[in-house]
């Protein structure tokens, strides 16, 4: 439960981001640094679901809808506007507004939790199919061709704010990603510490009781969902900067993976899912290099073992073990 102001967490997060933004570009070769940027952008996506599901109690099976929308919006805005300065806020705002609209229909329509999962999943698959079917010159928004299955390979990289000609190098984009992850975490932490966040957690704990205490649970769920949409949009923008946007951003592959990252990392924590996203992607990449064993088999075994051995996820299990060791040490 969050009670004291999370100073320590905020300072550690910002320090870690600053150190990795400075050190990793000096330590890693370029291809690994780009991989690291992808992992960090996925960690932002995992954080968004950790917030929505772990603290808002909303099982969103289609968090990738907002992730993909963030990527596409960024690409379309960057190709139509001069430079990317405005593309970034637009890439956060559009998924947030879309999430707010979808959330309004679901929560004010009093749709049950299971159906929220089904609806969000259907929405991301609809967007996947739609984006896939936009091949051909007739499918464009202003100067941005949507490109069907191929997506928008010409997505321009971020530039220095206000200097459209001055594009950031991959090293700097990694820095932006690391700091974005830290700032998103800080924002989630502050929100959970606020009155809004505490009421949202109460809604997750027991909707009926929260309502009987006078909280309009629909508004709290809507707020959490829209904030999650904004963060997922930011993740999509970062992803668009290290890969490029394509319909796979909306796909079942990513939609399912992000849920696995959150579960393995630890539902009900913010740090666990971020770690889960990074560690599991590294594992996936490593498994892909093995010749004799299918990477899917290895991942499958790891996931089943995780569910059976540490059902609450890595972080809660590790924290509990550390606390137990601490108590035993104190008893001696």
């Amino acid at each position: 439960m969050i009670r004291r102001f999370p100073w320590a967490e905020i300072v550690v997060a910002l320090l870690l981001a600053a150190i990795s933004a400075w050190a990793l570009p000096r330590l890693l070769p370029l291809y690994l640094l780009i991989n690291a940027t992808i992992y960090v952008s996925m960690a932002v996506l995992a954080l968004s679901l950790a917030f929505v599901w772990g603290f808002g109690g909303i099982l969103c099976f289609g968090q990738t809808a907002f992730f993909g929308l963030g990527g596409y919006t960024y690409a379309v805005a960057a190709l139509n506007l001069t430079g990317t300065s405005w593309a970034v806020p637009i890439a956060v705002a559009v998924p947030a507004l879309f999430a707010a609209l979808l959330g309004y229909l679901m929560f004010f329509g009093r749709v049950g939790n299971i159906y929220v999962g089904v609806i969000t999943f259907a929405v991301t698959l609809i967007l996947f199919n739609f984006a896939n079917s936009t091949a051909g010159a007739q499918w464009h928004i202003g100067a941005a061709p949507l490109g069907g299955f191929n997506g928008i390979p010409s997505t321009p990289p971020l530039n220095v704010p206000g200097e459209p000609g001055n594009a950031l190098a991959p090293e700097e984009i990694f820095g932006v990603a690391a700091i974005s992850l830290a700032l998103s975490y800080v924002i989630c932490k502050l929100l959970l510490h606020s009155r809004f966040g505490r009421a949202a957690v109460a809604v997750k704990e027991n909707e009926t009781r929260a309502e009987l205490l006078g909280y309009d649970v629909r508004l709290y769920k809507l707020g959490v969902f829209a904030i999650g949409g904004a963060i997922a949009g930011l993740a999509g923008m970062l992803f668009a900067n290290c890969v490029f946007v394509s319909p796979t951003m909306f796909s079942l592959f990513y939609a399912a993976q992000v849920i696995i990252w959150v579960m393995v990392g630890g539902l009900g924590t913010l740090v666990g899912p971020m770690l889960g996203a990074i560690v599991l992607q590294m594992l996936t990449a490593w498994a892909g290099t093995l010749k004799d064993v299918s990477p899917n088999l290895i991942l499958g075994v790891i996931l089943m073992a995780a569910v059976l051995v540490i059902p609450r996820g890595i972080l809660p299990t590790a924290t509990e073990a550390a606390a137990r060791l601490g108590r035993r040490g104190a008893a001696r």
Partner: peptide, 27 residues
């Protein structure tokens, strides 16, 4: 809605205790 009734100054206790199990008593 229930929340609007509660806001008028009506306290409601259900038959099966409806509580925030994951939170502490003070919170």
């Amino acid at each position: 809605d229930s929340f609007a009734i509660a806001r008028l100054g009506v306290g409601i206790k259900t038959q099966v205790p409806s509580l925030f199990d994951g939170l502490d008593v003070m919170e």
